[in-house]
Design a protein around this nucleic acid. Structure first.
Lengths: 158, 158
DNA sequence: TATTGTTATACTCTATAACTATA
DNA sequence: TATAGTTATAGAGTATAACAATA
């Protein structure tokens, strides 16, 4: 029942998070991708769609669709950019601000619940271990991305 | 720069895994969902599409599409079920078996690399902590699923 | 000429519902 | 009647490419 390796354990908990979010959003106009947009606007304040595309690492086309849906749901609005008439600024509506305040609180609450489940004597080692694995994984990804950029090894990305 | 809470850390590492898989599959006929099918067949041997639908918790319709793609890619084949003529058995082809053997090896290698990044003195606490959080998260999900089953109970946003 | 955002198009993953063949 | 799988249809997320307006 218990996964054998550390990778299996991490993939299992990732899967549980995914399912949790999917169920929380079922029947609403929200989704993980749309919440990603709201999260950035909540933390950064008004941003252009270009900034959202870069922050989420998705195409501008995709941002247009996500923003359309969130405007329809009345969580955000498009405002004219004060100095660049090509661009728009994405801002939270009052409903959007209320939603994100509640979401941030639930997020913090879940984090606290998870940490409470861990033996206090294990917590420091747990955080060190996760950070060490995150750093290693980031290194491995950067190394793979670098080798993939070499001509002949694959397609380059912007 | 380092995430503040345990939840942020776990979500970050989940995101890194996602990106890693997405990049590994780019330009191939594979994807995370299709690999999920192959993973089950690799570990369970020949299975019906019904079993795949239950194992992956997706619809039978979705399995039909995933299996179609993997048959086209020649990683699996549909064989007649020996006793139930309604059903088919999904089996790995030689190419599928070769792929999954290599994938399992890479999986084990990545797991080993991640664990090597952790201070040996922290490893036991790390595994205990992750398991404790996984158990707690599973409990929370079960509780939410239970309350969501009752009409009118819980926080529903219509 | 470069950038911002939209329209057009397409592919993948996902779901429900109706249908066929078989149990 | 119930089950295994497919066809039909739909919606969300994602991408590239072509385009308009603006810088």
């Amino acid at each position: 029942m218990t996964p054998a390796t550390i990778l299996d354990r991490l993939l299992l908990i990732s899967d549980l998070f995914e399912r949790d979010m999917a169920r929380a959003f079922a029947g609403t106009q929200l989704s993980a991708a749309r919440m990603g947009v709201l999260w950035i606007v909540h933390h950064s304040g008004p941003v252009t769609q270009q900034a959202l595309a870069q922050g989420l690492d998705v195409s501008a086309r995709n941002i247009s669709a996500l923003v359309d849906a969130l405007v329809t749901a009345e969580y955000i609005r498009r405002s004219p950019h004060p100095t660049d008439r090509r661009a728009v600024l994405i801002e939270l509506t009052d409903a959007g601000h209320t939603l994100m305040t509640a979401t941030a609180a639930e997020h913090a609450e879940l984090s606290a619940h998870l940490l409470e489940a861990v033996d206090p004597d294990d917590r420091a080692a747990l955080e060190r271990g996760i950070d060490a694995m995150t750093d290693r994984l980031t290194q491995l990804l950067a190394a793979e991305a670098h080798s993939a950029d070499r001509p002949g090894a694959g397609r380059s990305e912007s």
